[in-house]
């Protein structure tokens, strides 16, 4: 199938002023011409198919929002090309805008003083949505969320969660083939996060909308994305499905052990003491291997890389020294994998 978005070898460079420090420096800057070139996005390529939900991840300043800005037509690449829905977005920004929906972080794009339904009515006119399609869409929405409680409230009086909900609904309103969601769940409570994820998933399924999601919340990724693309320092370092990602680090297992009969009554000091002594024990046994030890749920967690040491050997070593009341082994979480990728920041294919 023809991909709906094609990003081909895209690079974006910016010119920034070198600022000096201190009071003297700020006087000097008044006359400075000391610029440097920063490469925000470095030779990134990807194809995205219709109906996919792609998690676009990376640490702050990695070049995520720059890429999104180029895909939405706000920015022009320094080199390379992008085609979105058969349109070059930065050459035909307004034409491209008809084909996309965007939710940008906490910045509501709805009219601040108006009730959401009025904003929707205006958007209907702006996007030239047919009456029937509009009605159908609102009907669909009312099956997904409780519309009555939010639609008649001015946006400025809404909670952040309600606002985000409305923004997402607004971005799907003209039934665009592609929707960009930038940090849609930032700052929301757990219940609202779940609601938003559910909504996005339903809309994606119902309308076969392609969703490009940037987020720092791995909960979003786990709930929504089959495929993730990771970018760091402007370079694409990972592009594959989520299973493959965890498989990549499959050699890692987390071993959790409980060293007390009643772990709930352990004090912080006791736990920390356990942590240090376990850590020392492991270091004695395997001086060349790094095995991070941490406390989680009043248990001692050991991250074991099976390429170097078997989990069973570690269990034995711990059991030799301590009485183990409970223990379990878990696969590494997506979040820890991503963190490891950011930390390592090397290209993984």
């Amino acid at each position: 199938m023809e991909p709906i978005i094609q990003v081909n070898n895209v690079t974006k460079e910016f010119k920034v002023l070198n600022r000096s420090e201190g009071l003297k420096g700020s006087i000097k800057d008044l006359f400075s011409h000391d610029y440097k070139i920063v490469r925000a996005v470095d030779n990134v390529s990807m194809d995205i198919g219709q109906g996919e939900i792609v998690g676009y991840l990376g640490p702050n300043g990695a070049g995520k929002s720059t890429t999104i800005k180029m895909m939405t037509g706000v920015l022009k690449p320094t080199s390379g090309s992008i085609i979105c829905n058969g349109v070059v977005p930065y050459d035909k920004r307004t034409l491209n805008a008809q084909n996309i929906g965007v939710v940008f972080g906490q910045r509501s794009q709805l009219w601040w003083a108006l009730p959401a339904i009025e904003s929707f009515n205006i958007l209907k006119d702006i996007y030239l949505v047919e009456d029937k399609d509009y009605k159908d869409m609102l009907e669909l929405y009312s099956t997904l969320v409780d519309m009555d409680s939010i639609m008649h409230k001015p946006v400025r009086q809404m909670s952040l969660g309600q606002r985000t909900l409305c923004d997402i609904l607004a971005s799907f309103l003209h039934n665009p083939p592609v929707v960009f969601l930038d940090e849609p769940t930032i700052g929301l409570d757990v219940a609202m996060k779940a609601k938003i994820r559910e909504l996005v998933k339903m809309l994606n399924k119902e309308k076969n909308t392609t969703v490009i999601l940037t987020t720092h919340d791995m909960g979003d990724v786990d709930a929504l994305c089959e495929r993730i693309v990771i970018i760091d320092k402007g370079k694409k370092i990972y592009d594959n499905d989520i299973e493959h990602l965890t498989g990549l680090f499959g050699a890692y297992r987390t071993l959790s052990v409980s060293l007390s009969k009643n772990k709930e009554i352990l004090t912080k000091e006791e736990l920390e003491q356990m942590e240090t002594s376990v850590s020392n024990l492991l270091r004695e046994q395997w001086p060349d291997v790094d095995m991070p030890v941490s406390i989680e749920d009043n248990e001692i967690q050991i991250l074991v890389n099976e390429a170097f040491t078997g989990v069973v050997k570690v269990i034995n070593a711990v059991q030799d020294k301590y009485k183990v009341y409970d223990m379990h082994i878990t696969e590494i979480s997506t979040e820890s994998v991503i963190r490891k990728i950011y930390d390592g920041s090397k290209i993984v294919k």
Partner: peptide
Amino acid sequence: KAGIMEDMQFRGAII
């Protein structure tokens, strides 16, 4: 001092 430095950031404005 913070006020001065903040102000100096805005080089265009001073001129």
